[in-house]
């Protein structure tokens, strides 16, 4: 068999050949999106609804009592902020979220990790948790008020009850995803069960745990407003109820936007934390 080196002319394209450029439309499954396609989409996602809102509220089709203009909403927000009410409401709500979320995390993460790694623990807890988590948390509010009164305890209890079961099961699934060969390899390297838990299951689960916490932090934000709508003397939810009494829809809109922005900020903080704490699991 003769083998000859390819000459330069061999690799020239035939005459009349035009190279095909691949187009990135953003509509192919899982394709990588170039930045110059991505940013216009991201900006439109925020600008388009804003424009629609402005046009609708300025058109005179809707009574401004029902739909304030963006400008009126912004002004209402500035007024709330200047009066100091916004800050004190934010502090009250964020404190509740922090306490409720903290208690939830302290219970659910160790329990979830234990359930995900020890089938006995899982069999013991999963049926009951699976049942309770389908009971809507707000339905517990009357019970908590009877048991704990109208104070902070009832609100915190709602936040915990509404998220702890979900976070437990999600953490359990994360821990159960640790490959068996990774655990076995660790045993053959001399590790015992405690070491495997600490040096293998925990670090492997970290990004998944942070993801679960991120999801349930959003749920905590939803619930805290529910709790404050029902019974509170402070907080962003309380501010909405007050505004409703005086038909101040612009205040309601302003507070809703503030809630959304705080939620978005914490969400991004968790994403950042995940990428910093577990760079190996970055997609």
């Amino acid at each position: 068999m003769e083998v000859s080196a390819p000459s330069a002319t061999d690799s020239l394209p035939p005459p009349g050949y035009t190279p095909v450029r691949r187009r990135r439309s953003g509509l192919k499954l899982r394709e990588e999106l170039p930045q110059r396609v991505r940013w216009p989409l991201v900006i439109s996602s925020i600008v388009l609804p804003l424009v629609a809102w402005t046009m609708l509220s300025a058109s005179g089709l809707v009574n401004p009592l029902y739909l304030p203009t963006p400008a009126a909403t912004f002004a209402a927000g500035v007024k709330l902020a200047q009066g100091g009410l916004l800050l004190s409401d934010m502090t009250a709500t964020i404190t509740r979220v922090a306490i409720g979320f903290g208690i939830m995390a302290v219970i659910s993460i160790p329990l979830g990790l234990a359930m995900g790694s020890l089938p006995g623990i899982r069999a013991l807890f999963e049926p009951m948790i699976g049942l309770i988590r389908y009971m809507p948390a707000p339905a517990f509010i009357p019970l908590f008020i009877i048991w704990l009164g109208l104070g902070e305890a009832a609100k915190i209890a709602l936040l915990v009850i509404g998220t702890v079961f979900f976070n437990t099961l999600m953490s359990a699934d994360v821990a159960a995803l640790v490959p068996k060969t990774l655990i076995n390899a660790s045993y053959t390297l001399g590790a015992n069960r405690r070491v495997v838990m600490r040096k293998v299951i925990l670090p492997h689960s970290l990004p998944g745990l942070l993801d679960a916490m991120r999801v349930n932090l959003a749920a905590t934000w939803n619930l805290v407003v529910v709790a404050e709508l029902v019974a509170a003397q402070s907080g962003l939810g309380y501010r909405i109820v007050r505004a409703q009494r005086f038909l101040q829809t612009d205040d309601i809109f302003a507070v809703l936007i503030v809630i959304g922005l705080i939620g978005l900020t914490t969400d991004m903080a968790f994403r950042l934390l995940r990428n910093v704490a577990a760079p190996w699991a970055r997609p």
Binding site: T181, N184, A185, T188, V200
Partner: peptide, 17 residues
């Protein structure tokens, strides 16, 4: 199991982190 017998698996069993 113990460190006196090392085991290498077919599938990669490295700690990704």
């Amino acid at each position: 199991p113990g460190a006196d017998r090392g085991l290498v698996f077919q599938s990669y069993s490295l700690y990704p982190w």
